[in-house]
Design a protein around this nucleic acid. Structure first.
Lengths: 110, 110
DNA sequence: AAAATCAATCGTAAAGATACGATTAGAATC
DNA sequence: GATTCTAATCGTATCTTTACGATTGATTTT
């Protein structure tokens, strides 16, 4: 079907999956890293740094905006993008606590 | 094209994206959480807890195995799955350092 | 040996994701 | 007002993902 059955999972599980999607494509990882380095926060700069077409970069930016992890500020004729601190912190806490739930001492099937 | 241009990104970026894929679907999040709680580490138990067909669960397990974050131990007639501690730790370090690179003080487009 | 159990795989359908050229829209500049 | 610049959106092709029924293969139990 290609369609995720979101209704059978918890809100938390769906949100974790959505936040993870922000990092689940190397282009989006690269974009986020570039935004953090702040050498490039304008779409055109990102297009120059990545070997991807402008339309493709715009599409990735749209997805990152949908998740909420970046925000765009119109600064004509450009649009300046940056990390959304609240959502970034949410990601920190979410993945932090999720990854901590596993105690390394736990062994398999005992 | 639907196909990612992995060759234009760094090894690190591609690995981050791959690790994030483990968490980018609520079913896989649920599976990992169940494996950590260790109330269910056998495929059949996971099928019982999730409202998904056995084939679908098996497919998600295969993807998690490909990433390396879980491992399967044959225990006939069952197969017991568990978290792979090394890769889990890799995920902890990877996401930990990535999420730390953003200093909250940084403001937008200045 | 036959039947039962469990999980992987096959085949397939439908929807989503990735990528890009072309077009459009908005604003600034000439 | 016309041109230029930037980025969003449209249209489209192709590949991937999600999901499930059915089948297969391996092992255990009868």
């Amino acid at each position: 079907m290609g369609v995720t059955k979101t209704e059978i999972f918890t809100e938390q599980q769906n949100r974790i999956a959505d936040l993870a999607k922000a990092f689940s494509h190397p282009a989006r990882v690269a974009i986020l890293q570039l935004l953090i380095a702040r050498k490039a926060c304008v779409c055109g700069d990102l297009v120059d740094e990545l070997e991807l077409a402008q339309a493709t970069v715009s599409q990735h930016l749209k997805e990152l905006k949908r998740i909420g992890i970046i925000q765009g500020e119109i600064n004509p004729p450009r649009v300046c993008y940056c990390i959304n601190p609240e959502v970034w912190e949410e990601a920190q806490k979410t993945f932090g606590s999720l990854l901590e739930t596993f105690a390394l001492a736990t062994s398999c099937c005992n």
